[in-house]
């Protein structure tokens, strides 16, 4: 994971639930690649098609609330989203995102300032820079950082089980 990166911003609102991130109808598609076009479709039908690799999402409070479907962070990762910056995250989504190596950053001020299409620069464990202003972000607890750095829980477990990572 790059320590510093710059990304284009997509703005979503408060309480973006997992049914919005990926509706139930598409959960059992065999591959995450097949799910990609339907991400965020109840809210913005054309959004998934517009997201480019490396883009970031900035949202309000309670991002990822709702069901335990892990397809939500998985499909976001598959779309190439580099990170989500939100005022707060729902707990199951938070765990699922870390387990899939999807970076989540908490900041309660950025959302109120950003405009979609602008770019921001993230420095992990430190700050986000946007339009000349700095927004603080904190670092994760050690056990979670280890999972994230391994690339997710599967890789962390493979390491533990002595399985060769492909």
């Amino acid at each position: 994971m790059e320590k510093t990166f710059t990304a284009t911003i997509w703005v979503l609102g408060d309480d973006i639930d997992t049914d919005i991130i990926l509706p139930t109808q598409y959960l059992a598609l065999e591959h995450v690649e097949d799910m990609k076009p339907y991400a965020f479709s109840p809210l913005r039908e054309d959004l998934a098609g517009k997201i480019q690799k490396g883009d970031m999402i900035v949202a309000g409070k309670n991002f990822g609330c709702g069901s335990s479907r892990e397809q939500a962070p998985e499909v976001m990762k598959a779309l190439g989203i580099s990170c989500v910056v939100a005022k707060s995250f729902a707990r199951i989504f938070y765990r699922n995102a870390i387990n899939n190596g999807m970076l989540l950053l908490e900041n309660d001020k950025l959302y109120d300032q950003v405009t979609e299409g602008d770019r921001a620069t993230v420095t992990l464990g430190e700050k986000i820079e946007y339009k000349g202003k700095t927004y603080e972000i904190s670092s994760l607890p050690t056990n979670l950082m280890e999972i994230l750095e391994a690339g997710g829980l599967v890789a962390a477990m493979q390491k533990k089980n002595g399985k060769k990572v492909e």
């Binding site: 069901s67 335990s68 962070p73 199951i92 765990r95 699922n96 387990n99 829980l153 599967v154």
Partner: peptide, 28 residues
């Protein structure tokens, strides 16, 4: 593997929802 796993709190049990990767690790 479902968010409404919290239901068993009615019996005074600690129960909560997780994703499938986390479940896989617990199964092992």
């Amino acid at each position: 593997t479902d968010s409404h796993t919290v239901t068993y709190g009615a019996m005074g049990a600690f129960s909560t929802g997780i994703g499938y990767t986390e479940m896989a690790a617990i199964l092992g």
